[in-house]
Each structure stands twice: as structure tokens, then as C-alpha cells.
Amino acid sequence: MPIRRVDVTTWYLEQRARAELRPAGRAPEVAVDIARAEVPSPELNRFLYTAVGGDYYWVDRLGWTYDQWMNWLERPGVETWVAYVRGTPAGYVELDPQAGGEVEIVHFGLLGAFQGRGIGGHLLAAGAARAWDLAERWPGREPTARVWVHTCSTDGPAALANYQARGFRVYDTKVETETVEHTPPGPWPGAR
């Protein structure tokens, strides 16, 4: 597959107070249920990672073994929140609590069939709210003092605007030249 070099802009965004979180600007066009996947499941998380990120060069975890996925998911405080539309996974938010009361939104996104239907803002607002109250579900964790995330120019075109609309502020920007395949890998081999 042909490769190319591209300049990738990465934006780092944060909220430093729960009051900075803003709700979605519009209600989803369809009923959405959001539930925490409380049982660590490498199969589920790998499915979500590839189904959401396959169109956006999410490749860092593609080589992870089952044990690597399980070790990540079993870490205290790591949470996966899944949005469902009529029982079908539509997208997810993955939270990673860190030292100093920080919580990173490590992954967030929707499967392609559910984009553009008002679900993204709703899911992001819910995921950020769960980052702010994460310590309430994990005894011994210090309360959340900061929620942060990064997105880049190879992510979905609405990502940065969605984060900003939910009250996240850019605190750093970096531009790096990366080598990427001409097209993203897609959700599974041969899907394209």
C-alpha cells in the first residue's frame, strides 16, 4: 500500500473544573442509551477501537495481544462507556485516570453509520461527566481535578469542534510530520 508523509496537527484540550462542561447543543435524532462496560472485555474494546478508529489511522493498539488489552482494561479506574442505538453499539468513550486527579479521555468516537445524527455531542458530554465523577465509582481515588484529551488533524473532521463545544479549551498544539498509509486501514482487513 502506498505511503505518504503528512503534517499532522495535534491539539491538546482540557477542562479544569466540572462547571466548564457544556451539554450537547442538540438532542440525538434517535434514542441513545449509554452504559458502562463493567466487565473488562478485550474483544469488545478491540472491536470498538477498530470500528471507530479504522477510518482515522488509529493503529497504535492493532498489534496488542489479548493479555495487553486485558492488562489495560483491568487497571483500576479505566472505564469504557458505550453508546447504544436500539441495542447496537454506536460509539464509545474510554477513560484513563492518572495521578494528580487527572482523567484522560483516551478514545472517543462513533461508528460511521451513527455519525451526523447528534449522537457525538451527547456521548462526549456524558463521557466527560463520567470523567468528572470517576472517583465516586473508585474508592480511594482522589477527586477529578482535570479532564484532558487530544485530537489531531487525521481524526474525524468534527472532533475538535465537538470538544470545544463541550467546554474543552486548547492548551497546546503540535505539528509533526508523520508517515501514513495512503488510506486508513478501515475497521477490519479487506473492509475497503
Rank of each mutant, 00 (worst) to 15 (best):
P2F: 00
I3P: 00
R4I: 12
V8G: 01
V8M: 13
T9G: 01
T10A: 11
W11D: 03
Y12V: 12
Q15R: 05
R16I: 15
R18G: 08
R18F: 08
R18D: 12
R18K: 14
R22S: 13
R22L: 15
P23A: 06
A27C: 04
E29F: 07
E29H: 14
V30T: 12
V32Q: 09
I34G: 02
A35H: 13
S41Q: 12
S41K: 12
E43N: 12
L44E: 11
L44H: 14
N45W: 15
F47V: 03
L48C: 13
G54P: 01
Y56I: 04
Y56E: 02
W58N: 02
V59I: 10
V59P: 03
R61S: 10
R61F: 05
L62P: 11
L62N: 14
L62H: 05
W64I: 12
T65C: 11
Y66V: 07
W69L: 08
M70W: 15
N71K: 10
W72N: 05
L73R: 02
E74W: 00
G77F: 11
Y84V: 05
Y84T: 08
V85T: 08
R86K: 09
T88I: 10
P89H: 06
A90S: 09
A90K: 02
G91L: 06
E94Q: 07
D96P: 00
P97L: 01
P97S: 01
A99E: 14
G100K: 03
G100V: 07
G101F: 07
E102H: 13
V106D: 12
H107V: 01
G109P: 01
L110H: 06
L110G: 04
G112W: 08
G112D: 14
A113D: 15
A113V: 00
Q115C: 14
R117K: 15
G118Q: 12
I119C: 08
L124D: 06
L124Q: 06
A125K: 00
A125F: 01
A129I: 03
A131D: 02
A131R: 04
W132K: 02
D133G: 01
L134H: 04
R137D: 10
R137Y: 11
W138V: 14
R141I: 01
R141G: 08
E142L: 09
T144V: 04
A145V: 08
A145F: 03
R146D: 07
V149M: 05
C152G: 13
T154M: 08
T154D: 04
P157N: 07
A161F: 09
N162M: 15
Y163A: 10
A165S: 14
R169K: 09
V170Y: 04
E176R: 08
T177S: 05
T177I: 09
V180K: 08
E181F: 10
E181R: 07
T183K: 02
P185N: 03
G186R: 03
G190A: 11
A191N: 06
